[in-house]
């Protein structure tokens, strides 16, 4: 079966020396959500722009539904929908006029375009605002209209570049539901995001991009399992106690404990055994934690472990915990 999206060794350099993509490869099965995760400037948007024929790669292969993006750009443009990083909508038109414009530019005839526009306005809860100029729309409404515009031609592949950035939780949930419906109906979705929760919820496969390279790839479960650990969270009564707990537990663990306000997070290989040891040591010091829990690592933990960023890292604390006791990573 042909992959919906196929990327092999794609590179792109800007201005001669800024390497935005450095040999990116992955493939996406039809009717799934693929999450492209990475910090700002990791190359996510550049890759989306190459796959949507806006940019051309320097080398490597990029295909949509088996069609080479660089060889047949005009045909490929009939296959996908794109909702970019900022809502690309026309301020001077109403919501409905925006959808009509994009429909007409997709060469949908007028009657069908009107039906499709109204259908999408209903689906995205914009029908009541359809004849209002966009100036009166909230950020969330613009975003929804932007995604609706990407769907007018019922594309087989949908690219969503940070679709929920700046959305309130309710709109975000609404959009997630729409994405799930689309995928159930056979659409393939490539989603870029900085929100791990989003990738975790929607994506069946994830690639983590950093400095233009895929540094990890797999299902959310695999990525978490590869971290090979559980996370122990200990809540404390005050900051002084928290600092003391970090001090006590640092020699015990192969990963540095990491203080977040009044609690300590430690990634540990053997959760239950470590927990028992920790409790015993704390008891000897007459420290009673306010909370004490073992949990599976979140994608946040994975992301942090892979990119070493996200949190403001005190560099020494990451690797050489023995030398610099008491140093910790604060958010």
């Amino acid at each position: 079966m042909t992959e919906a999206i196929y990327v092999d060794g794609v590179t792109k350099t800007f201005g001669g020396d800024i390497r935005a993509l450095d040999g990116v490869s992955f493939s996406v099965e039809p009717a799934t959500v693929f999450g492209l995760l990475g910090p700002n400037g990791s190359g996510k948007t550049t890759l989306v722009r190459i796959l949507t024929t806006i940019l051309r790669q320097d080398s490597g292969i990029a295909r949509l539904l088996g069609y080479d993006v660089a060889t047949y750009p005009s045909y490929v443009r009939t296959l996908f929908g794109l909702a970019g990083q900022y809502a690309a909508v026309d301020e001077n038109l109403t919501g409905r006029e925006n959808l009509m414009m994009v429909s007409r530019l997709n060469h949908i005839d007028r009657t069908d375009a009107q039906l499709r526009s109204d259908e999408l306005l209903h689906q995205f809860a914009l029908f009541d605002a359809k004849d209002r100029p966009l100036k009166t729309y909230s950020g969330g409404m613009r975003r929804r209209l932007d995604v609706a515009a990407a769907l007018v031609a019922k594309p087989k592949v949908l690219f969503l570049d940070e679709p929920t950035t700046g959305l309130d939780p309710q709109s975000r949930n609404g959009l997630w539901e729409v994405i799930e419906e689309l995928v159930a109906g056979g659409t393939t979705v490539l989603l870029t995001t900085q929100y791990l929760e989003e990738a975790d919820r929607l994506a069946s496969n994830i690639a983590v991009l950093d400095h233009g390279q895929v540094i990890a790839q797999g299902t959310p479960r695999e990525l978490k399992a590869n971290l090979g650990a559980t996370v122990l969270e200990i809540g404390c009564i005050d900051l002084a106690t928290t600092a003391r707990v970090v001090e006590i537990l640092t020699p015990l663990s192969s990963h540095a404990p990491h203080q977040v306000a009044n609690s300590v997070e430690i990634t540990v290989d053997d959760g239950p055994r470590f927990a028992m040891n920790a409790l015993r040591l704390l008891d000897e010091e007459k420290i009673t934690p306010t909370t004490f829990s073992l949990r599976e690592p979140s994608l946040d933990d994975v992301f942090l472990a892979l990119t070493g960023r996200e949190a403001e890292v005190v560099p020494e604390a990451t690797d050489s915990k023995a030398k610099k006791k008491g140093r910790r990573r604060d958010r």
Binding site: T52, R77, G84, A88, L105, N106
Partner: peptide, 17 residues
């Protein structure tokens, strides 16, 4: 610079339109 042209570029429309 509002991103509208970016959308147009990804549509199956005429390049000079």
């Amino acid at each position: 610079h509002t991103g509208l042209v970016e959308r147009f570029r990804a549509l199956p429309m005429s390049r000079s339109a």
